[in-house]
């Protein structure tokens, strides 16, 4: 397989060559040239549009396309595991208390606890599904990177960086980036 940079330069060369051919045809006096020029111009415009559409798919700078999305999805797995752990802690506590009670209370509580254990399997199932989605996104990212490479340098995507209040709407922060309540309190103090 040829290196991707070679593909990129060949594609750019081909596009440049196409534009040169169009320019040369335009100055010719032949009456049959118009149809050919229209077809070639259509092809050239189409390549240009495709390039900018692929450019628009990229995030700003050299950020991976789905980098943040996959991090967010993995965070869901971590958060649901933590929540499931807390639910199980509570269920185990109820189970220990139920063991000290007589019927019918203990039976009813044990039955409820069993249902909690069964339902806690949601974390395993959702985790597996999310892992599958992350895999698909990563594979798409590799394919798009290869396509982007093939089109050479692309224009910066329009609107990659949100402005004003829109730039403040980022949703929950990833744990590794999130500030703790004490960080916020400290910051708040410095601002007041």
């Amino acid at each position: 397989m040829e290196p991707q940079s070679s593909n990129a330069s060949r594609l750019l060369d081909a596009h440049g060559f196409l534009d040169r051919v169009i320019a040369e045809l335009r100055v010719m006096q032949s009456p049959q040239k118009d149809t050919l020029v229209s077809v070639l111009q259509y092809l050239s415009d189409h390549i240009r549009t495709t390039r900018s559409e692929i450019g628009a798919l990229r995030q700003g700078g050299n950020q991976p396309l789905f980098g943040n999305t996959t991090d967010e999805l993995e965070e869901i797995i971590t958060e649901t595991a933590r929540a499931a752990g807390s639910i199980m802690d509570a269920a185990e506590a109820i189970e220990s208390v139920a063991a000290t009670l007589g019927p019918p209370a203990n039976g009813a509580l044990m039955e409820a606890v069993t249902k909690i254990y069964e339902a806690s399997a949601f974390q395993d199932i959702t985790g597996q599904r999310i892992t599958k989605v992350v895999g698909v996104l990563l594979s798409l990212e590799v394919k798009l990177a290869s396509l982007t490479e093939a089109f050479g340098s692309l224009p910066e995507p329009p609107g990659a960086a949100l402005q004003g209040d829109q730039a403040l709407l980022n949703g929950p922060q990833l744990m590794k980036n999130a500030s703790s309540q004490s960080d916020i309190d400290a910051l708040f103090e410095t601002l007041s």
Binding site: G85, M110, Q123, D124
Partner: peptide
Amino acid sequence: VDDYTTMLRILRNLLRQ
């Protein structure tokens, strides 16, 4: 055997019951 700690805990608890 499970790579999800939650599932191991579920199985252990159900087996204990």
